[in-house]
Design a protein around this nucleic acid. Structure first.
Lengths: 210, 210
DNA sequence: ACCTGAACACCGTTCAAGT
DNA sequence: ACCTGAACACCGTTCAAGT
């Protein structure tokens, strides 16, 4: 049966953009080839004509999101290029919060992913660090940003709760220091805390030296 | 039908310990209530007599793993207590590498989880930091350890590969700096790199000051 | 070339029934 | 009290068939 005239033909482009939107709307767990087919007005099996598997589709989404990251001009100094790259990294985490659980834990070793990481590494070498210090600093900074973005998008504020959590009263009784610190763990505090750790790392890893 | 005499009765204890072992053997994706029932010689539905849902079971596993972390004596100085806590954290990530993908992204807000986090936070306050600096430092350090443990267990070395990865030749041609840095990204380099970033953070966050 | 429908081998979970 | 079997509403994917 030919598709109705009012339904645009299926393309990788349409599938990918609807997939990203669907994941943010309904979550990664609810995302399935069948559900995606539904929202595109098509049988799930039609998707396999464009992507050989669900994993291939998700992989294409990783690439698509990474490709949307702007690369700062190399004319700027390494530290401010690095700050921009990190900011863009956090931006995609927030813009694709639910997909980020997949995105962040898959190797960024496509051409697009490596290109982004190469820019980050270049900031370290351009700052005058030898190759070992640059490599290790790059990696340590990556740990920090990975953890921060995951925690901010999946963690305390938004993430799945323990099924038998401590009540607020128990928390205040048993761990008053933790209860008090909670004041600094709300989403409006994310930026300040993130920048604090980032400054410590940039300075300690030798990015701010001449 | 009564269970055969050679099969021990089902208990939460048996279910939990077999679940953890099964997850490490076959991976988190392959882990199902039906598969777990199989390895315990029982119908999947029997598990629901002990745990109301798969999520409850996984939550009990989070608690069980966190409960296995030793808490250093408060007589030691804050910085070395913190180093021990972080080492134990990394240990559970490695010991439960496949389960860690679930463990790390669920709120540690059970009694056991909060108790561990309270010990980490106490290191910051005991080091003489005011409550804001302690809270933000605690959080920034948590970001770093979360990212490092996830990267070490799920990431580059062991994690899922991009389905169209750059080849080694392409990598060397397009991004020679990244190719060269790869020398410092192998598992035998994890400890050194991790300690480097940890030192920078402890020092910069005020843990090594008097 | 592109899409479909039935089928296969799985899921988590509900429920009535067995001992 | 503890376990089972059938059933429901889902999965990803294969395959032969349709246009």
């Amino acid at each position: 049966m030919p598709r109705p005239a009012n339904r645009p033909s299926l393309t990788r482009e349409r599938i990918e953009s609807e997939a990203l939107a669907l994941i943010e709307r309904e979550g990664l767990d609810a995302f399935s080839m069948r559900r995606l087919g539904q929202t595109l007005g098509v049988e799930a099996m039609s998707l396999y004509h464009h992507f050989p598997s669900k994993a291939h589709l998700l992989d294409a989404l990783v690439d698509r999101v990474l490709a949307s990251v702007p690369i700062p001009s190399r004319e700027q100094d390494p530290a401010s290029r690095l700050r921009q790259l990190v900011r863009h990294w956090r931006d995609i985490a927030r813009r694709h919060a639910r997909f980020y659980a997949w995105l962040s834990l898959h190797r960024w070793n496509s051409a697009t992913g490596v290109a982004f990481l190469a820019e980050v590494l270049a900031c370290f070498t351009d700052a005058g660090l030898d190759s070992e210090r640059a490599a290790r600093g790059f990696r340590a900074l990556g740990y920090y940003v990975l953890g921060a973005t995951l925690d901010e998008t999946q963690g305390y504020a938004n993430g799945p709760a323990s099924l038998q959590p401590l009540t607020q009263v128990e928390l205040e009784t048993l761990h008053p220091q933790v209860a008090q610190a909670g004041r600094y763990f709300t989403p409006d505090q994310f930026d300040t805390t993130f920048e604090l750790g980032l400054d410590v790392l940039l300075s300690g890893l030798g990015l701010l030296r001449r």
